[in-house]
Amino acid sequence: MINVTHTENQIQNVLNFQDLISTPFQGEINAMCLKRNLIGDFSEIVEKVTLNENMSEISLEELRELQLSEQGQLARKILLNDFKGLKEHGASPTLNIIKCYDRDDAFPFFPTDVYSYHVDRSPIATDTFLCTYYGASSDIIPNSQATQKILIPEIRAELKKLYGESDEKGFESFLSEYFFDLHYQPKPNAQPINLGIGNLWKLAIDHPESKVLPCLHRAPKEKTGENRLMIIC
């Protein structure tokens, strides 16, 4: 029997990791959350890792070799356990320290970077898992509170100019090829939902076997001088 605390809008809260990975999305639910109050000093891990670029992946070997205080060791144990659980589930988790993501300025009227609300897409059935342990955390937004950007008339008109041909079928392929169709614009008075610190999330993505709408999410604007620590797969 699946232990569910309650359902709120598109979000279903679960009580343990096994329920998180095994509970299927259905109906309007396209986000699941394992709420947690984690112990340990995750900031110590962020401070001990040298960041030479805007984003760096931490290997398990590097994580294990860090000289940490007792609180830092508690944080490391949680990271290793989360990584192990996701790996055993068949996912391919990465542990990242992030100063900021690259911005997309190729099309000023239509940025396609992760700071824009977007959905993930895969040719096979899978889900997105993520947890922020330190720093700013991501947002999701109900599908009903956003509009696919390619359906907004003025944006679509600019995209057709960019495409430069009259072939409608080719235009639709162009939108998919350059990932324009993955991005959404919040409606006025939309109410984003912050994913919080320490919570482990499962988000529905766009794939051929999906029975629910993909979850709209975005990366947060980082706080100056505060790098993020997160796991994602």
Rank of each mutant, 00 (worst) to 15 (best):
I29M: 05
Q26N: 11
L20T: 12
N52V: 15
I150R: 05
K87T: 15
H183M: 07
S122R: 06
E177K: 13
Q71S: 14
S137L: 02
I141A: 05
N199M: 03
T23H: 05
F107N: 14
I150E: 02
I39E: 09
R121T: 11
V4L: 11
G164S: 09
L175I: 11
K48S: 15
L203C: 06
K221E: 00
L38P: 03
K35N: 10
E65Q: 15
K223R: 13
L79W: 08
F180R: 03
Q67N: 12
Y163E: 11
P93C: 11
S122G: 09
P108D: 01
Y184P: 01
S116A: 15
E65W: 10
P208R: 12
L159D: 08
L216Q: 00
E44F: 06
E158T: 04
G170L: 14
N13K: 10
P153D: 11
S173K: 07
F174I: 12
K48D: 13
Y117R: 00
W201L: 11
C233R: 01
D105Q: 02
A190D: 01
K223C: 06
S166P: 01
D19W: 02
D41E: 09
D120I: 06
G170Q: 01
L130W: 09
D139F: 09
H183C: 02
H6D: 05
V4D: 01
D19S: 12
Y101W: 11
I150G: 03
F179Q: 14
N37R: 08
A157Y: 05
D167N: 13
E28P: 06
P108Q: 01
L74E: 15
E70Y: 10
G90L: 08
T128S: 06
N9C: 00
I155G: 00
F171R: 03
N37D: 12
D105K: 02
C215E: 00
E61P: 13
L151G: 03
P142W: 07
H207D: 06
G72R: 05
I193P: 04
A146M: 09
S144D: 09
L162R: 14
P188S: 01
F179V: 07
E168Y: 04
K187R: 14
F129R: 00
V212A: 03
N30C: 09
N16I: 01
P142F: 03
I232H: 08
I150N: 01
L195D: 00
K149D: 12
A157Q: 13
N3Q: 04
I140F: 02
M55T: 14
N194H: 07
T94L: 06
N37A: 10
A136E: 15
A219P: 13
T50P: 10
P142K: 05
C100T: 13
I152Q: 06
F109T: 09
D139A: 06
I197E: 08
F83Y: 15
H89C: 14
F107M: 04
Q18A: 15
N9I: 01
T50K: 13
L200S: 02
D139R: 02
I155A: 09
Y163Q: 09
S144K: 06
Q12G: 02
G198N: 00
L60N: 14
V114W: 00
I231Q: 13
G40Y: 10
D120Q: 10
E165Y: 08
